[in-house]
Design a protein around this nucleic acid. Structure first.
Lengths: 195, 195
DNA sequence: GTCTATACATCGATAGAC
DNA sequence: GTCTATCGATGTATAGAC
């Protein structure tokens, strides 16, 4: 290969590094779906990407750093997923679609849902940089809710609990299905009903 | 001690065995609260009850059998907790109290809540006998809900999701507190509002 | 950047004496 | 029923050659 050909916007060396990291993360999600989030083995992970186990330390300084990268990766996937959709239209309709999309996103990958919303790995806390992505998501969620009239803290708490509960039931009892996702409209109308 | 004194209803030998098992389970919950449910070590557990690790196999034939006993123990605690309370009165009031009590129960012990409602241990499935206790609980819950007019499957699904979501938020964000438990009345009125 | 080799800890489980 | 001793597997992490 020609080491200096195609000198584009970014450094090709760090491009390749980023691509490798992306490949490792992709395999890490596969392993997590197979064995559980807490049971990822660095040996298995290295084998899945054609490396020996110590070579992983070139890309992640520890297993917790790998988890942190997965946490950030999952939130980037969620934000990209939301970017592809539009939440214009009436506030009620937007909130219904937002809710349904969140449940669907959770349903598509239960392990990813666990990582983002259940925090099931003892000893793992996301770094500030990674957690910023989570905050970005919460900001978007509260904005869509606020547009539909959900302002008080108690209402926001209830809204968050309902979305979380629907997502959890969907992932736990009907993974990949729509049984709870299809309750989004009913749930939102319930939340928005005047008291 | 006098080995044959006080010969009561049950065999004293199996009484002692049951008491020992209860002690082991109690320590297992303590360890789970400290290290996480999936990170219980049989060595630590044995040490906590004054035994060596292999001696635990006298009482549990495997680690999964220990988890199964914890699962059953947790549901027995929940059923006993509900037995102490009464859910008479108007159906709405009963459902509010039932909901609030469930969230409170979850809040009192996040690890127990995980074991009963989140199933976070890869490879663990409760035995039929243990799962029967879970079914007993679900029967009681649906009865209280049905008395308040929640009959259709979609309504039951939504009710279960709301309780689960409130409990999860309470455990995850305000353990031991009441922030989401105090939303029980609002949540139930929302669920019972005519559409 | 990748490798071999290895350190070092911990785990669940079993064998067999007492 | 409890113990000592130990097996075999697995885990993360590091040292150092190439």
């Amino acid at each position: 290969m020609n080491e200096s050909a195609n000198r584009v916007a970014t450094d090709p060396r760090s491009d390749r590094r980023e691509a490798k990291i992306a490949g490792i993360l992709s395999e890490a999600w596969d392993l997590a779906r197979r064995d559980g989030l807490g049971a990822i083995s660095l040996r298995d992970l290295a084998g899945a990407v054609g490396l020996r186990q110590p070579s992983l330390y070139v890309y992640f300084e520890s297993k917790l750093a790998l988890y942190d990268a997965m946490f950030a990766d999952g939130y980037r996937q969620l934000l990209a997923y939301l970017d592809e959709r539009d939440y214009t239209g009436t506030p009620r309709d937007a909130l219904i679609r937002f809710t349904r999309d969140l449940i669907t996103f959770a349903s598509e990958d239960g392990v990813r849902y666990q990582m983002l919303f259940q925090r099931p790995i003892p000893g793992f806390e996301p770094t500030t940089e990674s957690f910023a992505l989570a905050l970005e998501f919460y900001e978007r969620a509260t904005t869509v809710a606020a547009n539909a009239g959900i302002h008080h803290q108690a209402d926001i708490d209830l809204f968050a609990a309902v979305i979380n509960g629907l997502s959890h039931q969907q992932v736990a009892n009907d993974p990949g299905g729509r049984r709870w996702a299809d309750l989004a409209e009913q749930a939102v109308d319930m939340l928005l009903a005047p008291r």
